[in-house]
Design a protein around this nucleic acid. Sequence first.
DNA 1: GGCAGAATCTTTACACTGTCAAGATTTAGG
DNA 2: CCTAAATCTTGACAGTGTAAAGATTCTGCC
Lengths: 174, 174
Amino acid sequence: MRAIAREAGVSHMAPYHHFADKAALIAAVAEEGFRVLTEEMSKRIAARGDDPRAALRASGIAYVVFAVTRPHLFRVMFGAEVAGMSGDDYPGLSEAGSATFAVLQGQVERSQDEGTVRQADSRSIGLTAWSLVHGLAMLIIDGHFGPEAMHPEGAEQLAYEVTGGVYRGLRESE
Amino acid sequence: MRAIAREAGVSHMAPYHHFADKAALIAAVAEEGFRVLTEEMSKRIAARGDDPRAALRASGIAYVVFAVTRPHLFRVMFGAEVAGMSGDDYPGLSEAGSATFAVLQGQVERSQDEGTVRQADSRSIGLTAWSLVHGLAMLIIDGHFGPEAMHPEGAEQLAYEVTGGVYRGLRESE
DNA sequence: GGCAGAATCTTTACACTGTCAAGATTTAGG
DNA sequence: CCTAAATCTTGACAGTGTAAAGATTCTGCC
């Protein structure tokens, strides 16, 4: 808090007139982060509007690229403090988070409607897609995939490969 | 640090005679966490020794169950502080982390040898498997999948479902 | 234009944190 | 038993989040 006030060139108590406490500030930052993430995923989907399954994959790649581009923000969004916040106390944050997931989920359902993704439980497929890109993003920014993966190009390449393996399995089969 | 000392019933500086500083203590905790995780995954693999691909899946489920059972430890292991630690400064931690991933990776390769997983780049498949269970674990303990998923049984069920979708896609095809 | 009330900011103070420095006590081996 | 290492303690310091009280600046209405 004090560092933020310092950076803004203001007394150390000034931020408290805009945010109730440290948690409220963190919640606001995270909420904004979710909005930006939602937007970036939507943009990539729009760019591939003709092929829902390719758009789904593209939105997953956008998720990973976002994390690598703004690792600190991503960590705030999915850090312990935010995880401990009740949806009742921070409804804006809660809603922004849900909206992000809804983008992925909606794209799964569109692909099912189109027939390029099998008709299994859509929620389960959505969770799988989300888990995959979330884990990849986290592991990359934690440094577990080496420094090359921490640049946007490296991350995009890796996300492309990793989503590809699952992408295959999404098709109708049996 | 002071809370830890307090809990141990000792002066606030006593811990510093066992750990250089807060970072070193966190590193030690995380390292121990990785060892336990490695062990629990190995145990589940051993219980399914006859079917490598089923054992791979079981090790992933063990990963998720571990995270749900010890969410705070899991968060330390994959938190910002540990991510910022150089492998040169904390070789034990670095090695323990690699060992955990090696369990998953080894199981992928065993399944490929046996023929139940396709012969694509094993590293890429390993990364996919790790990302999937890691993301699932993180999202569950962040509360994004609801409170039911935060109990070991709920988490195991969810991990079973989610890994199932990918499990299908691992088979030889084309 | 002037003024009330709201919005914004400041100063001071407090309990708490991680860590340095210096000394005291306990423990183990020759 | 005595020495040296291991372990613990007390005291201090700068930094943190935040409560309380007061000062300043802005805004909308007579």
